[in-house]
Design a protein around this nucleic acid. Structure first.
Lengths: 339, 339
DNA sequence: CTGTTAGCGCCTTCAA
DNA sequence: TTGAAGGCGCTAACAG
């Protein structure tokens, strides 16, 4: 690999001049600049990012550290991040903490060691490792959920509101025993969605039956188990609000396996888009988040934070969309239909 | 951030001794080693990976450069890679080329600039950028598809065989006009699956009707468009073999939208697992790949390649599984049923 | 076994 | 405007 010295020699200038030309600095004489550019091209010179970063003590790499790489919500938002990053000369790498604080800690260590320029993160519940990034003044933007015990830039949605709307819809349809499959207690997002569910019931003068609230882990298996538990107990729900996409899938699998009909026996309203939502019968009612916009907004906040590290943290709340479809609509049963 | 000099001063030894202790080198006197470790702990010292990498001229970062981050096939295999990487002190970052040679080129540039220790890649069709990595002797393992015009370590599956089995199944079920939604012509994987389809027809003495072969882009929208084209022409297929998961989804969406029944009007056999496969009605017949194993095997090949850069490239072909479900079974129609 | 020294490739004062 | 020189933090020769 040719170095800046090789280029300098070939262009008959000093290494500093090469550096200046390659970084678009100051006014270098156009004759020399042209010679430098040609020499660089001829040698297929590519700057050593390691050396440059060591010198400048920061790279041009952003990490997107998500809690579940298999959740399409997180992968979809990466595109929004990439589009902003590319236009600002950053490269984006994706890391997967898998909701595991240990893995998160090991990626945080790597981010620190590699001196990455910024981090967009959906922190795991533990919340420990992220503090290291904050302590080290690494520019950081949280997505989806807050960093426990810290105030950093955040891009999220109106979780509580959306959950209220979804639950209220189920109430208005006339369902009596509306269950909620909630996420981990230590995730702000999960708490807000559960709060929205509770608020809707309260507003309708309905009691909140804690047996109808099942906590799970935001994964498919968790949704499945929670649904199974709900079906095995009394009162058995006639509707369920599932608070993320993977848990919705798990719950639907459980219902299908047991021959429980949707929405006739149990209605379903899910949070987040579900892959192949349109292929599932009946079509699924969902709250959807603007994933691309979330990624884009987070990236823009990160740029702003890098440019001005001391600016006060800001929170962007993006709007959700509610899609009411057949899975949450009460059907007139045959028995009550006029003969 | 404390440096190795700070640790050395505090432990009253030289920086080299600190370096040796921290890297587990040679036999350092245990008294000194203990002092060093304690000093490092007290200062919360974390080595600067940039400096270390600059010095050693290689990092401990692997890149997994996939062609579509929204395809669960690719994200699922990352876990297999991570498990191997972690046990060998490498961190894994995921990059998304989005089947776009330009994006791929820009990530290749970043990988080169950051001197990453190894790359696992599913190359885009263009094939250009990967050559840079090979030229720079970056250890590289291809997954899913070959690198055009180069011989590197490769982990793939028995694409042609699996496609033959799937198509043969459709033939045996008695379908007359079996279509194929094929992938991009410049991807080895797509070619092999199409070859398998052709071979099955040939073996059954069936003509190969080129109107029944639609080329698409391995994406949902491509599958949709291809299916639409097939439905609008004559002969209209009564079965279709879709050669990847996203195109299967697109095709199913098209069929659902037009009220075409599966499998009564058109039977479907898909390649790759489809998210929420079990929720789709009718259950989908698929060829599935061992994603975790593919990731693990690729990572192991990469380790071997790093350890011995000159070893001859090897190709690992992992077995697929065929799941025949209702979407590809011929149903006895009511007309022919005994009354 | 330990310390001194030099340099990985680059950028950035500082002088000219 | 250009060049010379130093140093980012670390490791690997080389002495001792």
């Amino acid at each position: 690999m040719p170095t800046i010295y090789d280029v300098a020699r070939r262009a008959r200038v000093s290494p500093s001049t090469v550096s200046r030309v390659l970084n678009g600095k100051q006014t270098v004489d156009e004759t020399l600049a042209a010679r430098v550019r040609e020499a660089a091209r001829e040698l297929d010179y590519r700057p050593n990012a390691l050396a440059r970063s060591l010198r400048r003590s920061r790279t041009n790499l952003w990490a997107v550290l998500v809690s579940d790489i298999n959740n399409p919500f997180f992968t979809a938002l990466v595109r929004g991040v990439e589009d902003v990053a590319r236009s600002s000369q950053y490269s984006v790498v994706l890391c997967n903490s898998d909701e595991d604080p240990d893995k998160e800690a090991s990626y945080v260590a790597a981010i620190l060691a590699e001196q990455m320029a910024g981090v967009i993160i959906s922190p795991t519940g533990g919340g420990g490792p992220v503090q290291r990034l904050i302590d080290a003044s690494v520019p950081i933007v949280a997505i989806d959920r807050q960093v426990p015990g810290a105030t950093v830039d955040l891009v999220t949605v109106d979780n509580e509101h959306a959950a209220t709307v979804a639950t209220t819809h189920l109430i208005d349809e006339g369902f009596r025993h509306i269950a909620c499959i909630a996420g981990p207690r230590d995730l702000s997002t999960a708490r807000q969605r559960l709060d929205g569910y509770r608020r809707a019931l309260r507003a309708a003068g309905r009691p909140i039956d804690s047996r109808l609230i099942q906590y799970a882990d935001f994964r498919e298996s968790g949704g499945y188990a929670a649904m199974a538990a709900l079906l095995d107990q009394s009162p058995r729900p006639d509707a369920v609000f599932t608070t993320n996409n993977l848990m919705t899938i798990g719950a639907l699998e459980c219902l299908a396996e047991r021959g429980v009909r949707v929405p006739d026996d149990v209605a379903v309203f899910g949070f987040d888009d579900v892959p192949c939502a349109t292929l599932i019968q009946p079509p699924l009612s969902t709250v959807t988040q603007p994933t691309y916009e979330i990624g884009r907004t987070a990236a823009e906040l990160l740029l702003a934070r890098i440019a001005e590290p001391t600016r006060p943290p800001s929170v962007k709340v993006l709007p959700t969309e509610i899609h009411v479809r057949a899975s949450s609509r009460r059907r007139v049963t045959k028995a009550t239909r006029p003969a």
